[in-house]
Simulated scan of single mutants.
Amino acid sequence: MNDLTLPEPIAAYFAADTQNPEAVARCFAAQAVVKDEGHTHIGLDAIKAWKAAASAQYTYTTQPFTLEREAGSQVVQAHVTGNFPGSPVDLRYRFRLERGLIASLEITA
């Protein structure tokens, strides 16, 4: 990554992001919610399936570059480059953490 210091579950999410859906799922609470590309994924099985599908369809790298705190959430901006339409793009990842795990994640452009 870079000199950006991220909370542990967020750092673990980005470290596992493109390589291992199981490792990504371990960053989340059991009933976590992910919102991405107009779809909502609830629970660890749905989150694993979401990440596996994205990883199978596209190859990409994610480089977080800012972290802000907004209304109980941690918002990370990241530069994403890969073989997907519109690449490269900067995305916003809005994380809500609970008990050392990700309770929710919303990804927006």
Rank of each mutant, 00 (worst) to 15 (best):
V24H: 01
E22T: 14
T62L: 13
S73T: 14
A52D: 12
K48G: 08
V34M: 09
T59E: 09
G82A: 07
T81I: 10
G43T: 15
K51R: 06
T40K: 11
E37Y: 09
A46T: 08
F28S: 01
V89P: 05
G43F: 15
L91P: 00
A16M: 09
L67W: 04
A46V: 06
R69S: 14
E70R: 13
R92D: 07
V33A: 01
P88D: 11
A23R: 08
A46G: 07
F14N: 02
R94T: 15
Q31A: 14
V75K: 13
N83S: 06
K51Y: 02
E68H: 14
A49I: 04
G43W: 15
A53G: 07
A54L: 11
Q19N: 13
F65H: 07
Y93I: 04
A25C: 05
W50I: 10
P85W: 14
A54D: 15
V24Q: 01
F95R: 02
R94W: 03
P64H: 02
F28C: 03
H41E: 08
Y13K: 00
R99V: 03
A11N: 10
T59M: 03
G100R: 03
A103V: 02
E68A: 10
Q19G: 14
A103H: 01
G82D: 08
S55G: 14
K48I: 11
H41L: 11
T66C: 05
A25S: 12
T62Y: 10
I102H: 02
V34T: 06
Y60P: 02
E70K: 10
F65Q: 13
G86A: 10
S55D: 07
T81H: 05
A11F: 08
T62K: 15
R96Q: 07
I42T: 13
V76D: 00
W50M: 09
G43P: 07
P88R: 08
E68M: 11
L105Y: 03
Q77L: 12
A15N: 07
E98T: 11
P21N: 11
G86S: 08
N83I: 04
R94C: 12
H41T: 07
Y13E: 00
A12P: 00
H39Q: 14
F14C: 03
Y58G: 02
E37T: 06
Q74R: 00
H41K: 14
V89R: 10
T18V: 10
T59K: 07
Y93D: 01
E70H: 08
Y93Q: 03
K51W: 03
V75G: 11
W50Q: 06
G86Q: 10
G82C: 05
R96N: 13
Q57W: 04
H41G: 11
G72D: 07
R99T: 09
Q31F: 14
G72W: 09
L97A: 00
R99I: 00
